[in-house]
């Protein structure tokens, strides 16, 4: 997917391939501008006017949704795939009761009868751990965390096969974040739903995802089972990210500093996109795109991977 700007085409997402199994949770982690949110809006086809998907396909339960018209796409959104944004809590309409907004979504997308819809909203509130007494209240009476849970309830309303969560807890305090993460895991297990969880926070990703994709400059540079990626990271970027993360518990170790800044995607670096900041960069990293190193399902694009230390 590219963004067309006056300054030229920004290759926000560049040749990214991944798949999510039913009931599986994929975590996408990366810094701002790495293209993780662009993936999210591409999956739902809610792109801004300046963005174009130039090539590729998005298969949802075997159907390529990219060539679908907006009318056809509407059938998929909410019912098959839905989304929770970072700023979603501000997307509740302040002049309508929260419960009514969810009921409206239900009637619109599933065509539920009003009485059914009311019953469903109660179920949803139970699911995300909100008190029923809040159903007929207005958004301003909700706290930030409650709003975010209401949004999750709304996203779940039509029982989608997959939910895309883009930094749903970033604006929230840790205690609230903890509760939402727990609810989301519980809901996913209860409904056997797939999830794509996008975050900049390695720790959150470690807690919510089964498989993890590390993104850098519009590409997935490392992918694998969460355990493998966290215990035996291959790509130097993944390793740098992990060692730059201060930890509350455990021993207090020196934090790594990554030199430089993420690249300008108007003119991404040649060869491996990480080479200007990579401590192990060699001549071939600068000139040639890196090969894929595979260790089972775990892979990374790197010229100089470390020795395999897994048992």
């Amino acid at each position: 997917m590219h963004y067309m700007t006056r300054a030229g085409a920004v290759r926000a997402v560049d040749g990214v391939t991944f798949s999510v199994e039913r009931g599986q949770s994929l975590g996408l982690v990366g810094e701002s501008g790495c293209g993780k949110s662009s993936i999210a809006i591409s999956l739902l086809k809610i792109l801004p006017d300046s963005a174009r998907i130039l090539s590729g396909s998005i298969l949802l339960e075997g159907v390529d949704i990219l060539p679908l018209s907006e009318d056809e796409m509407r059938e998929y959104r909410w019912k098959r795939i839905s989304m929770v944004f970072q700023a979603a809590m501000n997307s509740l309409d302040p002049v309508y009761r929260v419960g009514d907004q969810i009921i409206e979504a239900l009637e619109l997308h599933v065509g539920s009868a009003p009485s059914e819809a009311v019953e469903r909203v109660r179920e949803l509130y139970d699911l995300v751990g909100l008190n029923h007494s809040f159903i007929p209240r207005y958004p301003h009476e909700y706290s930030g965390g409650m709003k975010q849970r209401a949004i999750i309830a709304m996203a779940l309303a039509c029982e989608p096969a997959i939910i895309v969560a883009d930094e749903p807890t970033t604006a929230l305090d840790v205690i609230v974040q903890d509760r939402i993460l727990r609810e989301m895991r519980k809901v996913r297990d209860a409904l056997d739903m797939s999830m794509i969880y996008i975050s900049h926070d390695m720790a959150v990703i470690a807690e919510v995802s089964d498989v993890v994709g590390v993104m850098y400059a519009g590409r997935i540079v490392e992918f694998g089972e969460t355990k493998d990626v966290f215990e035996n990271p291959i790509h130097p970027y993944t390793r740098a990210l992990m060692s730059a993360f201060p930890s509350v518990t455990g021993e207090k170790r020196e934090l790594a500093t990554l030199p430089g800044e993420p690249p300008n995607l108007l003119a991404p670096p040649s060869g491996c996109r990480f080479h200007p900041r990579c401590p192990y960069a060699t001549e071939e990293c600068r000139s040639q795109p890196p090969p894929t190193v595979r260790r089972g399902v775990h892979w990374a694009d790197c010229w100089n991977p470390p020795e395999d230390q897994s048992p």
């Binding site: 205690i175 903890d178 993460l181 959150v204 807690e207 355990k227 215990e231 518990t249």
Partner: peptide, 15 residues
Amino acid sequence: ALLSAVPIPDPSAAR
């Protein structure tokens, strides 16, 4: 509570 709510970047650790 605040401490126990901080996520741990280790998939095998349970908080």
